[in-house]
Design a protein around this nucleic acid. Sequence first.
DNA 1: CCTGCTTTCTACAACGTTGTAAGCAACGTT
DNA 2: AACGTTGCTTACAACGTTGTAGAAAGCAGG
Lengths: 335, 335
Amino acid sequence: MRHRLKDVAERAGVSVKTVSNVVNGYVHVRPDTRARVEEAIAELNYRPNLSARHLRKGRTGVIALAVPELDIPYFAELARHVVTAAADFGWTVLIDQTGGGREQERVVASGITDHLIDGLIFSPLALTAEDLAGLDNRPMVLLGERVDHGPADHVVIDNVGAAREITSHLIGLGRRRIAAIGSQRTPEGASARLRLTGYADALRAAGLDYDEALVAPAPAWHRADGAAAMRGLLTSGVRPDAVFCFNDTLALGALRALHEAGLRVPEDVAVVGFDDIEDGRFSIPTLTTVAPDKARIARLAVELLAERLDGDPTAPARELSAPYRLELRESTQTP
Amino acid sequence: MRHRLKDVAERAGVSVKTVSNVVNGYVHVRPDTRARVEEAIAELNYRPNLSARHLRKGRTGVIALAVPELDIPYFAELARHVVTAAADFGWTVLIDQTGGGREQERVVASGITDHLIDGLIFSPLALTAEDLAGLDNRPMVLLGERVDHGPADHVVIDNVGAAREITSHLIGLGRRRIAAIGSQRTPEGASARLRLTGYADALRAAGLDYDEALVAPAPAWHRADGAAAMRGLLTSGVRPDAVFCFNDTLALGALRALHEAGLRVPEDVAVVGFDDIEDGRFSIPTLTTVAPDKARIARLAVELLAERLDGDPTAPARELSAPYRLELRESTQTP
DNA sequence: CCTGCTTTCTACAACGTTGTAAGCAACGTT
DNA sequence: AACGTTGCTTACAACGTTGTAGAAAGCAGG
């Protein structure tokens, strides 16, 4: 029930290579020969064996996207954009979940050296430049934080600038006790560090004190962590009048905790997030956030990968920046 | 920089096959030979060429998961479970987005006949038995609605029963004007039809009238559709005291619309959903929902696929059912 | 009729791997 | 000493495809 070029060739009375030529659209095939071959292909429902083709050609047409967790909405949305962008290049995307640990990420990064995939788009949390150094220089594009000037291409957004901007927005609303949720001291926390820097920058620029007590760590960036951190801030008695959560899921958790505490958003506490996930457009209240251009990020990553695949594999690593904008919604807008 | 068995063999002074034997853990290799080979492998950083291995073995070790949209949280959560379950079988999961259209789904279903993947776990929306009939009987497990007794293995949950149960729960709370959001008349709407049936069953069993005006269609099952449908119900003047949304994202949209209309949940209107996505545990209010056992669904699907791959490919199709339970939360609980 | 060119088609080898079958030692048993 | 047995290793072919080189056929121009 599963046929090969050879079967088609026999049926059409031509050589294997001629069938291959037809399949690949080679021009110098007589119209009647082509018709006979195509008929045989249809009759046998022939489909090429991709493993064999790839073995022969050295390319698989598959790229991998590795993200920490698929059910974090930001990554799911990003994945959709990457799949869409890759389709324009005729690529299939294999999506990989790393879990975010350094060891697992190292496995993924080195797994690229097996021959199943042509290239990798990788959104690491914990990976270090050291981990990358040992690898063959296979085509890889990193998303998010630059891994200490590692050897790979990068697509980044200006985390510090975006964090500064959204914090300044809160200050502009007259808020003075602005908490931050999501700080991390682990090596995984590169994004957290940059966003914290932007937050501190904005405070300093406005002449406000950076108060350690207003900065709540979050081991992960899930809703539950945001809720726990917010509860912690409320019970510690620091009474913030605004909160900058380092991503939207944290912010949704924080909204929940504020609701449970009987505080109104934005009247009592303004809340902002980061990522612009779909949920934030429908939460109660809707969520003011930094909206990175995910479609752009995905497209840039795919294009970088394409250039790396077709071009000089030893060319110096490039870094591209994707834009973002602030989405102002109910969680900061006094009616 | 990329090496083959041959390179390792030359370096270790053995035959290609011996290296292959070491790589595959064949037992009859002298310890010192094995050591020499392993050393050579490490020095050259050798990694097997999977395309070649798969060409030879006829298996790729890759299965595909095809879902309509990755950024629908239900599918993202499901994907995570499938990746986890597949890992136990040493499989890599290639995640595919169909978009949910019939034509695209047909392409995915027939794409399985190319040789890149060993099997497919498929959550179709629009596919018909007819579409499946034309295909070679390749290993495929369908999730969700049975495609009219099609030829493939299935993992289902009892949609009718679950819908009946959660509707009865609303009735038990004393609600009498229970709306439904999410009905669909398109062929894509198999789940919608079953859930509607369960809803109608429950009403009938309680002696309540089925009121067409209380049933709101939704072209897709996104938050925006839920919000729009809810607004429609409110402006039409039917004044429901409860709403059964056919999935959680619809329900989150409905919550939003109720909030904008100044109605309290659950005091004025009780709201329930279906799927138990993470968002519903943190929304305001938290969402009562039908919680299908996603981990179980994923595991059953992977196991069915494994049996189909190792067993008789022509064995009759099987249908397994995964359990669900009701998660009662704030959106139906009068304090 | 030969030459050179184009079009159309084909044989062969190669991509990197593993299953098969067989070879060669080393060993214990008659 | 001859034998079978076991452990270890290898040569070869095959998986299905495509690039290369070149053959065969047709055509134009001399």
